[in-house]
Amino acid sequence: MKNFLGLLFCLTVVFSVSAQDDLLAEIDSVSTQDYDTPAFKGLQIVTLQSTKIPAAKEFYFVVSHRFGSVKGGISEFFGMDMATTKIGGAYGINEWLSVSASRHTLLKVYETAVKYRLANQATGAPVTVIGYNTIDINTFLEKEDYPKIEFGDRLTYISQLLVSRKISDRLSLEMVPMYIHKNLYNPHVENDDQFSLGAGGRLKLTKRLSLNMEYVYNFDKPDFYQNPLSVGLDLETGGHIFQLLFTNSQAMTEGGYVTTAAGDWGKGDFFFGFNLYRVF
């Protein structure tokens, strides 16, 4: 496992060093330009939402997998035996507004979301600003186990403000303050209202390949959870966008991956996965 992490680190360093000179030149020469192309190619940086929105009448079919922890080794095929799945779609109502829905096998969660543009770097603003609001519905909770449970108890609300800037043709950065409210929670280990701050970026390596990274700091994190840290590669193949990734949070819902990251990178406890987008 140490060899694997060492190889991943070396590849990241090699890619970054090889692009460093060109990046500095581009930042110096074009940092004041407005960009017509989005800061990010995928709807997500890795798991964190990006400031990209589907175009009007454009539909994205989304399939994502997170496998079990690679720490299990060959006996669990490095986590491949414990896959969780997300299936959903996002539709652009117009150029600044989209809606999405998905189903997650982990805790049998349904998620609905709305994404809307408030400012756009391409039209002269210094940054692109996107609002993103989701509602998670946990259907895993059984009436037999929770006799007094009501529909409202199953809900989690998440509000995010996505703020990105395309620094150059190769480099894009994003900040994400967010608020999470859980109607059903354990008061001994967490709060019903939680605040987090995420950050991520995309480094374009080639015409069709980019290196993405993201990190989320939780201000109300219980001691037994970690702050989510993820790294991935974007591969563009025609009408597909394919993201390969490693993360210490197995959940894929907005509230889940931010607040319940259980893996520890320092102990080799993280998850492999991918996101696949098909554009129609």
Results as ranks from 00 to 15, higher is better:
residue 1 M to V: 10
residue 1 M to Y: 09
residue 2 K to L: 14
residue 3 N to P: 11
residue 3 N to E: 14
residue 5 L to A: 07
residue 6 G to R: 08
residue 7 L to N: 10
residue 8 L to W: 09
residue 9 F to G: 11
residue 10 C to P: 06
residue 11 L to C: 11
residue 12 T to S: 15
residue 14 V to L: 14
residue 16 S to P: 08
residue 17 V to T: 12
residue 20 Q to M: 14
residue 23 L to G: 08
residue 24 L to I: 13
residue 27 I to F: 12
residue 30 V to I: 12
residue 36 D to R: 12
residue 37 T to L: 15
residue 40 F to N: 01
residue 40 F to V: 02
residue 44 Q to G: 13
residue 46 V to W: 09
residue 48 L to K: 09
residue 52 K to L: 13
residue 53 I to Q: 05
residue 53 I to F: 09
residue 54 P to H: 01
residue 55 A to I: 00
residue 57 K to S: 15
residue 58 E to G: 04
residue 58 E to T: 03
residue 59 F to K: 06
residue 60 Y to L: 08
residue 67 F to W: 03
residue 67 F to K: 00
residue 80 M to P: 00
residue 87 I to L: 15
residue 90 A to P: 07
residue 90 A to D: 11
residue 92 G to P: 07
residue 92 G to D: 02
residue 95 E to I: 00
residue 95 E to Q: 14
residue 96 W to I: 14
residue 100 S to Y: 03
residue 101 A to T: 06
residue 102 S to D: 12
residue 109 V to L: 01
residue 115 K to R: 15
residue 119 A to V: 01
residue 125 A to Y: 10
residue 125 A to G: 04
residue 129 V to K: 04
residue 129 V to N: 02
residue 133 N to P: 08
residue 134 T to D: 13
residue 135 I to P: 11
residue 136 D to S: 13
residue 137 I to A: 10
residue 146 Y to R: 07
residue 156 T to K: 10
residue 156 T to D: 13
residue 156 T to F: 04
residue 158 I to G: 09
residue 164 S to V: 06
residue 165 R to N: 06
residue 167 I to C: 07
residue 169 D to K: 11
residue 169 D to P: 04
residue 171 L to W: 02
residue 172 S to L: 02
residue 174 E to T: 05
residue 175 M to Q: 03
residue 176 V to P: 07
residue 177 P to K: 01
residue 180 I to F: 03
residue 181 H to G: 04
residue 182 K to Q: 08
residue 187 P to K: 05
residue 189 V to M: 09
residue 192 D to A: 09
residue 193 D to L: 06
residue 195 F to A: 06
residue 199 A to D: 02
residue 200 G to I: 00
residue 200 G to F: 03
residue 204 K to E: 09
residue 204 K to F: 04
residue 207 K to G: 09
residue 208 R to C: 12
residue 211 L to W: 10
residue 221 K to H: 06
residue 223 D to S: 15
residue 224 F to Y: 15
residue 225 Y to N: 11
residue 228 P to I: 01
residue 228 P to H: 00
residue 229 L to Q: 05
residue 231 V to T: 09
residue 235 L to M: 08
residue 239 G to L: 10
residue 244 L to A: 12
residue 246 F to V: 12
residue 248 N to W: 01
residue 249 S to P: 10
residue 250 Q to T: 01
residue 263 G to A: 03
residue 265 W to R: 02
residue 269 D to G: 05
residue 270 F to H: 01
residue 272 F to A: 00
residue 273 G to C: 04
residue 274 F to C: 04
residue 277 Y to N: 09
residue 278 R to L: 14
residue 278 R to E: 13
